[in-house]
Design a protein around this nucleic acid. Structure first.
Lengths: 351, 351
DNA sequence: CACGTCATCCAAAGCGCTTTGGGTGCGATT
DNA sequence: AATCGCACCCAAAGCGCTTTGGATGACGTG
């Protein structure tokens, strides 16, 4: 059933039917009702294809997700961000277009989406420090919203970011206050802006406390469980082993915990862990009594908010650049405790 | 730049330009080359909107992901499936359309996608036993592919599933062979077909070994880490505590492990764990030495394969129903070992 | 009573492609 | 010389909507 058939059966012009369905005022309420009821009864839905060709809007928002053939890692937080954003899209009549591309084609993927006109706007995920996508999208005149920040990009752009520097600054201070002096950093890949910022927060806090940085206990890689485990195992074997770990993800923190327990040590007693908690739905960090002490910020909420802001930006492209910075919440769980007496610790391992 | 402008500048008709670009034979190689070079130089890309209106194909494949306001859980394996499928879509020139809908609107979401004509086919995720979506999609005459199975649906349909019954059957047998007699099942939600099948596999194996089923140690819920932890904590406190656990997900297995270790027991020695491992990218179960003994089947590969099959189905809708059943691989890791002497175990807890 | 104002409705022109159903000119065939 | 086949190209008709620029009456007004 298409518009023409519908209008013929109703004995009205396509114009009137279209207007009746789209809420234009040039049609009497009686007619509108008749049209709407008839359309409903016949399960009529305008063809998205035709509609978007006629209006010049696709009512779709693009997300480009890069995949690498080397490390097949999918961003841990991706699913939850998508869920949040998708929820908002649905509410506003938008759909989400996901484009999975080889990572070195990622930049080109955006031009393609723009030129093919398949989306009205895009979300930029996982920005690097000097992310080339931002300049590209500005040049293409495609509305976009960045989840995160690209610190080295000079021009203003729309973003929503968590204050990662502050989050890891606070996490570090929290451990320092507990008496820890040897604090390891298990970071994500440092080409990601967020990871760099987290390191800076960590470094600032240590410096402020007059503690020298030790590259040996500052690590960075993909945030998997095995990575957290492997690196922790290695660090705990050091003569001057850390008494606390800061992990960039709850996933790598799980690996950290496993390594600690394998060594026969107790988390929160012998060794402390604090991590960044994105409030991933299937990895809830306990509502009542958090497993991990963490700096928390819901990535699903971020997805919702980014979507909301991008949509309003599409509707009003001249609205000034939007920038939001969320502070992560510090939740205290079971994984942290006072720094142990150093001698006691170095004797304790039984494995 | 659109077709008309392009053809004007080239001094050719739109027809010829279109044919040159789309590889039709009615155009000389010289002209084709000239057109292609010119199009390339001017970054011309046909409007997806117009193209799909003209051809009647949208070159998009739909995925409906339900979200519930009650439990905000996003399917754990979702991201990896998507990554696999998206990779294949990209290769064939398709895009992925994600529709996030409230779970009770899910069925309607499919009709909408079909009637709006925004997709050429859909993937059905997480089928239940008697999944209504299958009948609906057949009625709508929309090509679809099911990831999983809907056991109670009578009509044939296209699916790819893992042999879940066999997987958990083998897992259970493996534990029985190790001497375990008290084996707990930490399943996913049993309205999911896969969970029911896994339970059946578990039950069959126990029955075959002449062991009575005990509902007290057969649990089912969302597969989160805290759930695995909570239920294990409870079960280990029983007088007749299980000596082994079978978990439906590596995520809940992490919770199981935590509860075991909290109790001061050793995984793979005092208590064994075996789980289903979907080979999630950020939860790799060790390439060399798996953390968990598991029945493994890559959900990313499943995504790839479903996409591949759906696309060929779209191209040739008359191709008979496709059904594939994959056997999960049993990988032996560190989390399983011989059943301990019962008395020794019940004395061992030190927490 | 003629005229302007509304409220309703419509015909037709796009949107930017693909595709049908020819044209045209050339060398080869009869 | 007339005919045919072939290679190459084109005009125009859709695809199913939205939207512009009127038409058509009914009604109130001076």
């Amino acid at each position: 059933m298409n518009l023409r058939e519908l209008s013929e059966q109703l004995g009205l012009s396509q114009t009137t039917v279209s207007r009746a369905l789209n809420g234009y005022p040039e049609v009497s309420e009686a007619t509108r009702k008749r049209v709407q009821d008839f359309a409903e009864a016949h399960q009529y839905r305008p063809s998205q294809r035709a509609q978007s060709l006629a209006t010049g809007k696709s009512m779709q928002i693009g997300h480009v997700i890069p995949f690498s053939t080397q490390h097949e890692m999918v961003n841990v937080v991706f699913a939850d961000f998508i869920a949040g954003a998708g929820e908002v899209y649905a509410k506003h009549g938008y759909d989400m277009l996901l484009s999975v591309v080889n990572d070195h084609d990622e930049v080109q993927a955006y031009s393609e989406l723009a030129q093919k006109g398949s989306v009205d706007g895009v979300i930029v995920h996982g920005p690097t420090r000097d992310d080339p996508r931002i300049a590209l999208l500005q040049e293409l005149d495609m509305p976009f919203f960045v989840h995160g920040r690209a610190t080295d990009v000079g021009t203003p752009y729309n973003y929503l970011d968590v204050n990662n520097t502050r989050a890891f600054g606070r996490a570090t201070e929290f451990l320092l206050d507990l008496g820890h002096r040897r604090i390891a950093l298990i970071n994500g890949l440092e080409r990601m802006d967020f990871a760099r910022r987290r390191r800076e927060g960590y470094e600032d806090a240590l410096r402020a406390a007059g503690i020298a940085l030790d590259p040996a206990i500052m690590r960075s890689d993909e945030m998997t469980e095995p990575y957290g485990h492997a690196v922790t195992k290695e660090l705990l074997a050091m003569d001057d082993a850390p008494t606390a770990f800061i992990a960039s993800s709850i996933i790598s923190a799980l690996g950290v915990r496993r390594a600690i327990e394998e060594r026969g040590m107790s988390v929160g007693k012998d060794v402390s862990i604090i991590c960044f908690d994105d409030a991933i739905s299937y990895m809830p960090n306990g509502a009542g009594e958090p497993i991990f002490t963490a700096t928390r910020s819901s990535v699903r909420d971020a997805g919702r908010r980014c979507a909301e802001l991008l949509i309003s930006l599409i509707k009003d492209p001249d609205a000034g650049p939007v920038a939001e910075l969320w502070e992560a919440e510090l939740v205290v769980g079971q994984s942290t405790g006072p720094a142990p007496n150093r001698d006691a610790v170095s004797k304790s391992p039984k494995a």
